[in-house]
């Protein structure tokens, strides 16, 4: 049907979306909390003229990034850091799981209270990861970490490679992250200064990664939400135990996380303002423009 009657197919999809929204509304009337989980459901439902808009034209429901992922993770720099064992050996993955766990535990001791929960969740995750049998294909692991977490874990891997404890490791991440993706209905849906329709952040990000030592970089139009709705980029970086790899990982990961925090801070996200101020205290060569917040009372009756 997609091939031969594409218009008819679209009609069916729209009808299904309308029905879907009708049932969601029934559920939420009874107290269910509903959120869009990243496939542009709200956007497509509104295009299908489903009962998904408030009187002021906004969506009735939040996206998961607006309520959860944005303020709790991305604005602090937590995002989907991952690594892949180039030896393709299970033993290497087990060793890296232990190294990562140890590094996160060390960071947890002095972590600010507002990010302790995120760190603990990921320590629990990595502890259980092996038994959850999640590996399909390459020997790989994912966890959410902030700038310090990603840098410390990667550095500990590089040291272990140098000592011959493990083989080379590729580090990378999903594009769905703090800095990598501009997407008004997903990753940057918790940006409220109008800039959610721009893609400066993701383009700057890939350019910045490319000259700070990434082994490969990529920038894409289109992701989970559809073509023309998102610009997203990522990187891969090979750790081989060398001094060059150590310099690269420190420089590149620092930018790859703090670029997005700086932008989210400029958009007045309070968690990001706090996070970028902390980052500036740690790195004297980082100097970010901080927004001045206007008194709402002063601007309201303009």
């Amino acid at each position: 049907m997609i091939k031969n009657q594409p218009d008819e197919f679209k009609k069916f999809v729209k009808r299904a979306l309308k029905k879907h929204v009708k049932y969601i509304n029934k559920h939420t009337d009874k107290g269910t909390y509903f959120f869009d989980y990243g496939n542009a459901f709200l956007l497509e439902a509104s295009r299908a003229h489903a009962d998904i808009l408030k009187d002021n034209g906004e969506f009735k429901y939040p996206s998961y990034v607006q309520d959860i992922m944005g303020p709790m993770c991305f604005d602090y720099g937590f995002g989907p850091f991952r690594w892949i064992c180039m030896s393709n050996k299970k033993e290497d993955l087990e060793r890296t799981d232990k190294i990562a766990q140890l590094e996160l535990k060390k960071l947890l001791v002095d972590a600010p209270s507002e990010i302790k929960q995120q760190m603990q969740d990921n320590i629990d995750w990595i502890k259980a990861a092996k038994n959850n049998n999640l590996v399909v294909g390459s020997q790989a692991r994912i966890l959410y970490a902030n700038s310090d977490g990603r840098i410390n874990i990667a550095q500990a891997f590089n040291n272990a490679i140098k000592k011959g404890v493990i083989g080379p490791i590729v580090i990378g991440r999903d594009h769905h992250d703090v800095s990598g993706t501009d997407s008004p209905f997903r990753e940057t849906s918790n940006i409220y200064d109008g800039s959610q329709y721009t893609s400066d952040m993701s383009i700057q990000n890939v350019i910045g990664d490319s000259f700070r030592g990434a082994t490969w970089v990529s920038i894409h139009n289109g992701g989970g939400v559809g073509w023309g709705e998102v610009i997203n980029g990522g990187f891969g970086l090979l750790l081989d135990g060398s001094k060059q790899a150590e310099d690269n990982l420190k420089s590149m990961l620092h930018w790859d996380v703090n670029n997005g925090i700086a932008r989210r801070s400029w958009a007045r996200n309070k968690e990001a303002i706090q996070a970028i101020k902390t980052a500036m205290k740690k790195e004297k060569f980082l100097k970010v423009t901080i927004p001045n917040l206007v008194d709402e009372k002063l601007i309201k009756n303009l």
Binding site: V136, R141, G234
Partner: peptide, 24 residues
């Protein structure tokens, strides 16, 4: 259409989405 980790050679199977969803 490269999606996110398809055209950038960074897909690691269903583990990525399982973790993100668990955290969410």
């Amino acid at each position: 259409y490269g999606q996110m980790t398809a055209g950038s050679f960074m897909y690691i199977g269903p583990q990525g989405i399982v973790h993100g969803t668990a955290i969410t």
